[in-house]
Design a protein around this nucleic acid. Structure first.
Ligand code: FES
Ligand code: FES
Lengths: 153, 153
DNA sequence: TATTTACAGTACCGTACGGGTCCGATATCC
DNA sequence: GGATATCGGACCCGTACGGTACTGTAAATA
């Protein structure tokens, strides 16, 4: 299905929730889980990964919690995905060579690489702040800048 | 990693190999496996899926085998991926609603959908024939039409 | 028609990863 | 300094899927 992993899914939701808070505010894992209506362990694990990748700041102890390490407009979807499930690579050989059993006979590596780059570029274009409803109006969504005219099937 | 499944990976390689044969020619699963240097069972399963999806024609019995059901230029990557691993949907809720536990509180569905559409559009733009080396020159690759200027990180 | 070839479908197995639990480390507050 | 709250890391478990094997069925050939 070309799906991002479940944990990434959760992570994006969490990030967008955090981004809609006044900036710099820290929330505990428990609060975040409640807001996202997700089980605490899952949220906790997700937060840990995001913190380790430097997307979130973590503060321990009482009154501790997590906060965005930088502005939502500076966090791209590619950042989040990479942090949560590793480098973006559609195929095994997209991430580093020598994986596909026999690159010698395979002529499609180059073209695949371009597809990969194109998709990564798409994901790098979108930031967390673009996922939020507009601060003023409720429910209204910021329109995305789509790369080219969208062509449905 | 935002990876396509392994079977899709194999499928694309197989399709590109078939596409480089003179068109209409059928090859047995055994031959195809030999050419792709992949274990026969894996290739066999992959071919079955592609045939069921109508991308390949299968012919049983002696002298049977598989052949492309249509021109390589008419088979997009999206077709192949959909055939091999189901509909393209980055998140659970991208494919059909009512999956994400609580769509009511989730504000990011709309934007995500656009990201999904954009990526699917990319995959629909690329055909199998574009993965092949140019028929005349050896090793030279047909340049892809990238959607927009590629911006590396 | 008998035989051979090769695809079709089903069922089975092992690993990988999402999901969950537990204990240790650290900062705040009394 | 003790108590409490919260994050960090290691470990365990169940499911899902890639990989495999087996049996059935259709087509070609003699
Ligand atoms: S598919 Fe990976 S090198 Fe060919
Ligand atoms: S509805 Fe699926 S992430 Fe919100």
């Amino acid at each position: 299905m070309l799906r991002v992993s479940k944990i990434t899914d959760h992570g994006i939701v969490i990030l967008s929730n955090l981004a809609s808070e006044p900036d710099g505010s820290t929330q505990s894992a428990r609060e975040i889980a409640a807001e996202a209506r997700l089980p605490l362990p899952v949220v906790s694990k997700t937060l840990k990964r995001l913190a380790r990748a430097g997307i979130l700041e973590s503060h321990r102890g009482a009154k501790g919690g997590y906060a965005l390490a930088r502005s939502p407009a500076e966090i791209t979807l590619a950042d989040a995905i990479t942090a949560l499930e590793g480098p973006i690579g559609l195929m095994e050989c997209s991430v580093h060579l020598g994986q596909c059993s026999h690159e010698s006979t395979c002529t499609i590596r180059g073209p695949w690489q371009r597809v990969n780059d194109e998709i990564r570029a798409s994901l790098e274009r979108i930031t967390i702040s673009e996922l939020l409803p507009t601060p003023g109006g409720d429910g209204e969504l910021i329109p995305l800048r789509v790369a080219s005219g969208d062509r449905r099937r």
